[in-house]
C-alpha cells in the first residue's frame, strides 16, 4: 500500500508541472500580463517596458515559469492587479468555495444515490422512466439557466431564500447554490448508481444472500450497495475538482465571493498571477482527489489490494 502511494505520487509530479506550465503559457502567451495593470486603457510604451522589466517579463518564458514555480514553493503566489497578495485572495475565497462544494457533494450523495438505488431496483417501472427522463432534462438545461430561474422564483418572486449570498457565505445560504452547482452531477450520479445497481442485482452473491434468507434491507445495504458504489465513488471523487473549477457560473449567479469569482475577475482583468495561482491550486486538488479515490477502492472492495 505504502509503495503504491509513493508510485502514484511520483506519477502525479510530471502531470502537476505539465498542467501548471500549460496554464502559465496560456495566460502569458495568449494574454498580455501587464494589460490589467493600467485599468481599461492600454499602458503607454515606456510604462509597459518598465513594468515588464520589474516583473521579469522581458526574460524568456521558461525562465519566467521556473521563477514563478520557485516562488510558489516558498508560498509566494505573487500579487493580483489591485496589489493584493494572491495568497490573501485565496485564504478568503477557498473556504467559501469549499463550503459550496461540500453542500454540492452532499446533495450528490444523498439525493443522487437514493434516486439511483430506487430506480435501479425498479428498472422499467414508471418511477424509473420518470426519474431517467428527469435526469436527462436536468443534464440538458444549462446550469446558468437553472440557477437564474431558481434565483428568480425562490429568491425574488416567493422570497424563500436570499437571492444573493452574504459575504460570510454560511452553510444555510449556500443550500440552493449548492443544489444548482450539483444539479448536472446529481443526474449523472443517479444514472450511474442505477446502472450499477441494476447490473449487480443479478449477480450470484445477491442471489446467495437472498437464498440465505437475509432481510431485503440487509441484502441491499450490505451486499448490493457496497459493490455497486465503487464506480459512483470514483465519479464523485473526480467531481470534487470539477465542481470547484465549475463553480464560476454558480458563484456569478448568486454573487458568492469564492474561487470562481476571483478567477472570473482575474481572467477579465488579465491578472496573470491570480489566474495561474488559483488554477495551480485547483489542479493540485484535482490530482489529490483522484489519488484518494484510488485508495478508497481498496477500502470499498477488499478484492483490490495494492502492492
Amino acid at each position: 500500500m505504502g509503495r503504491y502511494v509513493i508510485r502514484r505520487l511520483l506519477q502525479m509530479i510530471p502531470v502537476f508541472f505539465g498542467a501548471t506550465l500549460l496554464i502559465f503559457l496560456m495566460v502569458n502567451v495568449m494574454g498580455d500580463p501587464i494589460a490589467g495593470l493600467c485599468g481599461d486603457k492600454a499602458c503607454d510604451p515606456a510604462t509597459a517596458a518598465q513594468l515588464k522589466k520589474e516583473f521579469g517579463l522581458d526574460k524568456p518564458v521558461w525562465q519566467q515559469y521556473l521563477t514563478y514555480m520557485g516562488n510558489v514553493f516558498t508560498g509566494d503566489f505573487g500579487t493580483a492587479f489591485n496589489g493584493q497578495k494572491v495568497t490573501e485572495l485565496m485564504s478568503a475565497a477557498f473556504p467559501v468555495t469549499i463550503r459550496l462544494t461540500i453542500v454540492a457533494i452532499l446533495f450528490e450523495i444523498v439525493i443522487g444515490i437514493s434516486l439511483g438505488v430506487v430506480t435501479g431496483l425498479r428498472r422499467g417501472r414508471p418511477v424509473d422512466t420518470v426519474v431517467l427522463m428527469l435526469t436527462l432534462i436536468v443534464i440538458a438545461i444549462p446550469v446558468f439557466v437553472t440557477g437564474l430561474l431558481l434565483q428568480l422564483l425562490l429568491g425574488v418572486e416567493w422570497g424563500v431564500i436570499r437571492p444573493t449570498v452574504s459575504p460570510e457565505a454560511p452553510f444555510n445560504e449556500l443550500l440552493i447554490p449548492g443544489l444548482v452547482l450539483a444539479s448536472v452531477s446529481l443526474a449523472y450520479v443517479t444514472r450511474l448508481t442505477r446502472t450499477s445497481i441494476a447490473e449487480n442485482s443479478r449477480a450470484d452473491y445477491v442471489r446467495t444472500a437472498v437464498a440465505k434468507g437475509l432481510p431485503r434491507r440487509r441484502v441491499i445495504t450490505k451486499h448490493l450497495l457496497r459493490n455497486s458504489l465503487i464506480p459512483v465513488v470514483t465519479f464523485i471523487g473526480t467531481d470534487v475538482g470539477a465542481l470547484m473549477g465549475g463553480a464560476i457560473v454558480t458563484e456569478r449567479i448568486f454573487n458568492i465571493h469564492g474561487v470562481g469569482y476571483q478567477l472570473y475577475q482575474g481572467i477579465l482583468r488579465q491578472s496573470t498571477q491570480t489566474v495561474v495561482g488559483f488554477v495551480t491550486v485547483l489542479v493540485l486538488v484535482f490530482l489529490v482527489a483522484n489519488l484518494i479515490v484510488d485508495l478508497l477502492y481498496a477500502v470499498l472492495d477488499p478484492r483490490i489490494r495494492y502492492a
Binding site: F16, G18, L22, M244, V249, I267, V279
Partner: peptide, 17 residues
C-alpha cells in the same frame, strides 16, 4: 492528463479572453 487537469470552462475562458 495535463489537458484533463485544467478545468474545461476556465481554460476556454482564458483562451477566449
Amino acid at each position: 492528463n495535463v489537458f484533463f487537469g485544467i478545468p474545461f470552462l476556465l481554460g476556454s475562458m482564458v483562451v477566449l479572453q
